[in-house]
């Protein structure tokens, strides 16, 4: 199953979004973050030391989190805002920590958290650029997702760029 996470913050990519939502993506589950009630991680660590694997915040996020261990792919759609992924996507990522365990292990020569689940979905990122986005911004974002894949012990499939005003149909068919 492909878990598609839409982290667009407003209506500025409406054409992209409309076509995305009209498409019939087989075996996928779609979440539009801005239409859901999702709170910020509070750093309480209850999901590590009190109710292992379960977040203390009760809101719409559990619908997403509960599907992650059984998903094969996580498709993250984010606009570039102030040179980085959106705060909505960051909020989604901060609340992933019930997926990992507080214990630290050495993995590929670095300290990383032990995994709570046997596998996590591989990640594909679709980046909606603005007119100020540079190649270096994308390089930094790609490196960021390589780090995240290292932490979650999965693979980064690819980072797909959608330049401002450019064709995007092929991106949607290939999701």
């Amino acid at each position: 199953m492909n878990l598609i996470i839409n982290g667009i913050t407003n209506s500025s990519f409406s054409e992209f979004e409309t076509q995305l939502e009209q498409m019939d993506h087989k075996d996928s589950v779609y979440f539009k973050l801005r239409d859901l009630q999702i709170n910020y991680c509070q750093g309480c660590w209850d999901c590590w030391v009190k109710t292992p694997g379960i977040c203390a915040i009760k809101d719409d996020y559990e619908q997403i989190l509960s599907r992650i261990p059984s998903a094969d792919q996580l498709t993250i759609i984010t606009p570039i805002l102030a040179g980085y992924e959106s705060s909505l996507i960051k909020k989604f990522k901060d609340r992933l920590i019930p997926m990992i365990h507080p214990y630290i292990e050495i993995y590929k020569g670095e300290q990383h958290h032990r995994q709570r689940y046997g596998k996590t979905p591989d990640i594909k990122v679709i980046v909606l650029e603005d007119e100020d986005t540079t190649d270096e911004d994308i390089a930094t974002l790609t490196e960021l997702y390589k780090r995240t894949s290292l932490n979650l012990r999965n693979e980064l499939i690819e980072v797909v760029r959608v330049k401002k005003g450019a064709e995007f149909e092929h991106v949607l068919t290939d999701i």
């Binding site: 910020y40 991680c41 805002l81 102030a82 705060s87 909020k91 990522k93 901060d94 960021l144 932490n151």
Partner: peptide, 18 residues
Amino acid sequence: LYVDGMPAQVKHFFERMS
């Protein structure tokens, strides 16, 4: 550091700043 970046609340502020 939260999941390889700043906490989302900080990113939200950066977006307002920009």
